[in-house]
């Protein structure tokens, strides 16, 4: 998958026509992250949303492992996928840490630019917001299932 294809077929602009999709994607600023670079921190104010165009982004949460603070991989995102939707959803605070395990390119969309664009194109704003809702809903469902699986395993251990 080429960068252009990954961008044009990205989940962020699903349901938009080519011109509308290009109008949204043109708002993004290309950023290259070197291996190990941090894109955003846990708890940081979310000013930008990101679309991955090349490489990979690891989303992590802190955890104590054998007395040490470790970043535990929670999700991994690939080209065409969106991260940082907290920029569009109040209270605009990142709930994960994002970093690039290898050299990675992203398009960074500022909240102000997106909202200004949507204000004059409500249909585009609706489509993009719905796409973001799909990403959020999917994560919720995956983690709901993961949580219940852990509960089941804990109950099995307790009753063993």
């Amino acid at each position: 998958m080429t960068i252009a294809t990954a961008t044009a077929q990205s989940e962020l602009v699903q349901g938009l026509g080519p011109a509308e999709a290009q109008g949204v994607l043109a708002l993004g600023a290309r950023v290259t992250l070197p291996p190990g670079a941090q894109l955003f921190k846990l708890g940081e104010t979310a000013e930008r949303m990101y679309l991955i165009t090349r490489g990979r982004i690891a989303l992590t949460l802190p955890m104590q492992v054998l007395g040490r603070d470790e970043d535990i991989l929670v999700e991994e995102r690939l080209p065409g996928e969106t991260i940082g939707w907290s920029a569009l959803i109040p209270p605009h605070r990142f709930t994960l840490k994002a970093s690039a395990p290898l050299e990675t390119d992203v398009l960074a969309f500022s909240r102000a630019a997106l909202l200004e664009h949507f204000a004059t194109r409500p249909a585009v704003g609706y489509a993009v917001t719905r796409n973001v809702a799909v990403v959020m809903g999917h994560r919720l469902q995956v983690f709901q299932a993961m949580w219940l699986r852990q509960m089941q395993q804990m109950v099995a251990l307790r009753s063993a």
Binding site: M63, I72, Q141, V142
Partner: peptide, 13 residues
């Protein structure tokens, strides 16, 4: 732990 999370996520998917 990482392998566990990947497998659990795949199972949830």
């Amino acid at each position: 732990i990482e392998r566990h999370i990947r497998l659990e996520q795949a199972a949830a998917e």
